[in-house]
């Protein structure tokens, strides 16, 4: 499933190519039939990911990949559900969904291809753009503090929080596998250099800062690790809590409401 015959819309050198390969290889190595996998995505360059993989997908609206994933998982707990989209989609337009979906702790993976910029709309500030960065809509420099997505995910109680780097493809592949295997909501923020619109956070910029960490089950330690950004950026599973109770979902498909159930409702609420 690594080879897609389709015309890929990413720029040459885009970090998404390596992320796509890592995701495809992860799915291959997990040995799941593609029919059992559903990818959801929003809109943006990162959100085109499912187009170039051989699985089921629902490529929805900007910011809405996560509520689609929630609906799918609640309806069909037998499916492996992965939401994948960019930083603008997940943390900006879909920020409210990101917050509240973590609270649900359904068994889904949320992958964010984070290039710290809006690519498809050509270079505006994203929620993770560093302060002071100049771009078409912030000609004086971005006046806002960047969001620290993994600190946020940890604060919301996410039981699995990881950061990957597009250039460390095999490391990333293992993170994605661990995230999919993890029972509960797994958040993986992926550093994805944008060669067209982000001239600051380049392969080299990230490469000089990333270092690998081992998982901890201490949430506060993980928050401190996740917070570090300008000098040192931790990649790996920053936090994993196997004991965090995953939300139980009933199997509803293909069961049906029966006539006797209706009789009971009529008696209970209408007689």
């Amino acid at each position: 499933m690594t080879n897609s015959p389709y015309d890929i819309a990413w720029c040459p050198g885009c970090g998404n190519f390596a992320i796509r390969t890592a995701l495809a290889e992860a799915l291959n190595e997990l040995d799941m039939p593609p029919q059992q996998i559903v990818l959801t995505s929003g809109i943006g360059q990162g959100a085109k990911m499912p187009q170039y993989l051989e699985t089921n997908y629902f490529n929805g609206l900007h910011g809405r990949s996560v509520p689609l994933a929630v609906g799918i998982k609640l309806a069909r707990p037998d499916l492996t559900v992965i939401a994948v989209s960019g930083d603008g989609c997940m943390y900006g337009e879909g920020g409210n969904h990101f917050l509240h979906t973590i609270r649900k702790n359904l068994d889904i993976a949320i992958l964010i291809t984070n290039n710290q910029v809006y690519g498809l709309t050509k270079g505006q500030s994203s929620p993770t753009t560093d302060r002071g960065v100049k771009n078409p809509l912030d000609p004086q420099g971005n006046p806002n503090e960047p969001l620290s997505p993994l600190v946020l995910a940890l604060a919301m109680g996410a039981p699995f929080v990881a950061r990957g780097f597009a250039k460390e493809k095999d490391h990333l592949k293992e993170l994605i596998k661990a995230a999919i295997r993890f029972e509960g909501t797994a958040v993986v923020d992926i550093l994805q250099p944008c060669v067209s619109f982000n001239k600051i956070n380049t392969y080299q910029w990230y490469g000089e800062r990333v270092y690998q960490v081992e998982p901890t089950a201490d949430r506060f330690e993980a928050i401190r690790t996740a917070e570090s950004w300008q000098d040192k950026i931790a990649i790996g599973i920053l936090f994993r809590d196997e004991k965090h109770p995953v939300r139980n979902v009933r199997d509803l498909f293909p069961r049906h409401t029966e006539r006797e159930d209706v009789e009971r409702l009529l008696h209970l609420y209408h007689a």
């Binding site: 629902f58 929805g60 689609l68 609906g71 509240h100």
Partner: peptide, 14 residues
């Protein structure tokens, strides 16, 4: 917004 998208996800899923 989430409500309608969740319903669409569930419908898609069966």
């Amino acid at each position: 917004i989430a409500a309608v998208n969740m319903a669409l996800g569930a419908s898609y899923a069966g």
